[in-house]
């Protein structure tokens, strides 16, 4: 099942009240927040109502907040030496 990955890029401050309501119903509370919604007609209609404010991608599977955070984490550039043996173990 496909999902829309929706990120709020622009705030609805100062726009008509119903726009804020649409964002709330999508689960977007503050700028740069990301939510996953299933690809459905009602969700598509909501996205069309706020298309100037959001960024949308179609993805196969929703990610949790922890998974999205892990993706943003930079490569530490090192590994702990004591685990190196297991890491480079080619005997198996």
């Amino acid at each position: 099942m496909a999902y829309f990955k929706i990120t709020l890029m622009r705030s609805a401050i100062g726009l008509p009240k119903p726009i804020g309501g649409v964002l709330k119903s999508l689960g977007l509370r503050k700028r740069m927040a990301t939510v996953y919604q299933p690809v459905r007609q009602d969700v598509a209609g909501k996205i069309m109502a706020v298309k100037e404010l959001v960024d949308v991608q179609e993805v196969e599977k929703p990610l949790t907040n922890a998974e999205m955070r892990a993706l943003r984490r930079p490569d530490p550039g090192f590994y702990v030496e004591s685990r190196g043996v297991q890491r480079f173990d080619t005997t198996e």
Partner: peptide, 19 residues
């Protein structure tokens, strides 16, 4: 954004009036 939503709905096979 509209193209992305449209592509997803095409796969679903259900058009939305707004799009």
């Amino acid at each position: 954004v509209v193209a992305t939503v449209d592509a997803a709905l095409q796969k679903l096979g259900k058009p939305v009036a707004a799009v």
